[in-house]
C-alpha cells in the first residue's frame, strides 16, 4: 500500500491510501485526517425512526433553522441554470444521493462514508464526471447512478479478492454487523439514490425560494409557507394555526393566508421545475417536467 496526499474537494489535506493489484479501477480508501472544526465533510442525516439512511427533512432542518441566515441568491439562478458550477460544489451537492445508494446496498455507516468519499475523490473529481454534464440533469442523474453502481462493484471485487488472498491473514470480517444494518425491507439502493436526489432538488428549491422572498421583501410569504406547508410536509411539524399567523403578521382575513399559500406553492413549483431541468436547453420546461414525472414514477416503483 502506498499513501499519497492531495488537496481534497473542500480544501483540507486528505490522504489517499492506494491498494494496488486489485485488478480493477483504482480503488481508494479515503481517510479524513482533518482536525476537529476543520471544514467538516457534509455529514449524512440519519433518522433512527426511518428506514432510510438519508432523508430530506434533516438537511432541510439544518439549512432552514428559523434563525439561519438567508441563502444568498446564486448568480446562475438568473439565467435559469442551477447546475453545479464546480466539482467542489458537485461533491457537496451529490453527497447525499451517493451515500444513500451505498448505505442502502448494505454497507455499515462508516464503510458507506468511506466509500462515498472515495467515490467523490476518485470518480466524481478524479475522472471529472461533471464534465459529462452536457445533456441535462436527468442524464447526469443516470450517469452518476451508474458510476456509483460500478464503483461499488469494483470495491466489492477488490474486497473479496483481498479476503481470498489476505496479505497478513488477519483481516477481520464484520459481515454480521453490516447485515444487521442493511434494511432488506425498505427501498433498493436505486430507490434510496432517487429519493435522496429528489430530496436534494426539494432542498435547493427551498433555498432558492427563500432567497427570492428575502430579496423581494416577502418575509411574510416565506414564513407562512414554511409554517403551513414546508415544515408540516417535510418534518411532520404541526402547521401553525391561521389565527397565529394572522396575529404574527397583522393580517385581517384568513384568505390572506390562503392566497399567500397558493402564490408560494406556485413559486416553489417553479423553482423545482427549473432545478429539475437545469442543464437542459434554456426554457425547455417539457424536459424538466418529464424529469420530475420520471422521478415520481421511480419513487412509486413504476419504473426501474
Amino acid at each position: 500500500m502506498r499513501t499519497v496526499s492531495a488537496q481534497g474537494f473542500d480544501s483540507p489535506r486528505l490522504h489517499f491510501h492506494f491498494f494496488p493489484g486489485s485488478g480493477c479501477a483504482p480503488f481508494l480508501r479515503l481517510r479524513d485526517h482533518r482536525l476537529p472544526g476543520q471544514n467538516p465533510l457534509p455529514p449524512p442525516r440519519i433518522r433512527a425512526d426511518l428506514p432510510y439512511p438519508v432523508v430530506v427533512p434533516m438537511p432541510y432542518l439544518a439549512a432552514h433553522a428559523m434563525n439561519a441566515p438567508t441563502p444568498a441568491p446564486r448568480d446562475d439562478d438568473r439565467d435559469g441554470s442551477a447546475a453545479p458550477r464546480s466539482s467542489d460544489e458537485a461533491a457537496t451537492r451529490y453527497w447525499g444521493a451517493i451515500y444513500a445508494y451505498i448505505r442502502q446496498s448494505g454497507r455499515r455507516d462508516d464503510e458507506a462514508r468511506d466509500l462515498t468519499q472515495g467515490f467523490i475523490a476518485d470518480v466524481l473529481l478524479g475522472r471529472d464526471l461533471l464534465s459529462k454534464l452536457d445533456e441535462g440533469r436527468g442524464k447526469f442523474r443516470t450517469l452518476l447512478l451508474s458510476a456509483v453502481r460500478n464503483y461499488l462493484a469494483d470495491a466489492y471485487r477488490f474486497d473479496h479478492a483481498a479476503r481470498r488472498h489476505p496479505a497478513d491473514a488477519r483481516i477481520v470480517r464484520d459481515d454480521a454487523a453490516a447485515e444487521s444494518v442493511h434494511d432488506r425491507v425498505s427501498a433498493s439502493p436505486d430507490a434510496a439514490f432517487h429519493r435522496a436526489w429528489v430530496g436534494m432538488l426539494i432542498r435547493e428549491a427551498c433555498d432558492a425560494l427563500r432567497a427570492d422572498c428575502a430579496a423581494r421583501g416577502r418575509d411574510m410569504a416565506w414564513d407562512v409557507f414554511e409554517r403551513r406547508i414546508l415544515r408540516p410536509m417535510l418534518e411532520g411539524a404541526a402547521p401553525t394555526p391561521y389565527e397565529d399567523l394572522m396575529a404574527r403578521w397583522n393580517l385581517d382575513a384568513p384568505s390572506q393566508v390562503s392566497n399567500t399559500i397558493v402564490s408560494m406553492r406556485r413559486a416553489f413549483a417553479g423553482h423545482l421545475l427549473r432545478l429539475a431541468g437545469a442543464g437542459n436547453a434554456a426554457g425547455d420546461a417539457a424536459l424538466a417536467r418529464t424529469e420530475l414525472a420520471q422521478l415520481l414514477s421511480l419513487l412509486e416503483g413504476r419504473m426501474q
Binding site: Y52, V55, V198, L234, Y242, P254, A269
Partner: peptide
C-alpha cells in the same frame, strides 16, 4: 379563525411526503 382541520395531515417526513410534494408540483 383557523379553517384547517389538522387531524388528517399526511404521514410526514417519509416517502409519502416526498412523493406528495412531487405530485402536487406536477399537478400545478
Amino acid at each position: 379563525t383557523d379553517p384547517v382541520d389538522r387531524t388528517n395531515r399526511p404521514d410526514p417526513a417519509g416517502d409519502g411526503a416526498i412523493r406528495d410534494t412531487l405530485a402536487w408540483v406536477l399537478h400545478s
